[in-house]
């Protein structure tokens, strides 16, 4: 009997170790998802400029630190990695989405490859594909926002990128087991951008470009329309100047 007790004590310590490790990894993973979500929202918030990318780079490094924690936990042996791979995959998907989106905005080009920054390869093909599929939705939102600001060039560029990604996804065999929901969502977001490009093309034929910039937000029905009013204050230089002039006048009158 004593023997059995001893064995079970060993088991207990082993169980606790595994559970603790899983908890620590889970916490780090949650941080990774939250931070990468925040990075994506941050990138959406303003139109890109130099200062913004510096700040985004800082946020990206924050995420890298969190992933490093996971990598350190797992780095002990191969078997360990496979045991926890299921818990990580959610975070990694979100991370890839954020990174690809960041590089897309920075270089204006789709960058398919990611440089390895960690000792062992944490990125599964399945997670990578999931992140790439989610990226298309993010690109769609970005391009609709851009149109609302009067930028008619970005949707055409984005459409090219999304069509390329979509044609890659079609070619995957059934054994790749990509989430079919994601594919259909990607298709709808692609069709949305196609519709936007179509409307821009028609509008460009119809109106001269000066009028177009003002009317476009009305032609394309999107939630972005509501946001534009708020944003215009920050981005439209004329509006800003006129506002400042008004304030100066008021102060002089007073």
């Amino acid at each position: 009997m004593e023997n059995i007790e001893g064995i079970f004590e060993n088991y207990r310590t082993e169980f606790d170790e595994i559970n603790n490790k899983r908890n620590r990894i889970d916490i780090a993973r949650k941080d990774v998802t939250i931070f990468s979500k925040r990075l994506i929202f941050f990138l959406h918030r303003d139109m890109p400029n130099q200062n913004k990318f510096k700040e985004a780079q800082k946020k990206l490094e924050q995420i890298h630190q969190k992933i490093q924690i996971i990598a350190d936990e797992i780095s002990t042996d191969e078997e360990c990695f496979w045991r926890y791979s299921f818990t990580i995959s959610w975070g990694i998907e979100e991370y890839i989405e954020a990174v690809l989106f960041y590089y897309y905005l920075k270089d204006n080009k789709l960058k398919i490859k990611i440089r390895k920054k960690f000792k062992n390869n944490l990125i599964f093909p399945k997670d990578y594909l999931g992140g790439l599929a989610d990226l298309t939705g993010e690109l769609m939102r970005y391009s609709t926002d851009a149109v609302a600001h009067g930028d008619t060039q970005t949707p055409i560029k984005v459409l090219e990128a999304i069509q390329q990604i979509y044609s890659l996804f079609i070619s995957l065999p059934r054994s790749a087991k990509v989430d079919m929901n994601k594919l259909s969502v990607m298709e709808t977001s692609m069709k949305k951008i196609e519709n936007i490009c179509f409307k821009i093309q028609l509008a460009q034929e119809e109106f001269p470009k000066v009028i177009l910039d003002e009317t476009l937000p009305q032609i394309i029905p999107q939630k972005a329309k509501i946001l534009t009013k708020k944003r215009k204050n920050n981005y439209d230089p004329q509006f800003k100047q006129s506002k400042e002039q008004k304030e100066q006048k008021e102060s002089k009158e007073n």
Partner: peptide, 9 residues
């Protein structure tokens, strides 16, 4: 239907 939209663009 998709081609229709894209051909106009």
């Amino acid at each position: 239907a998709r081609l229709c939209v894209n051909s106009v663009t």
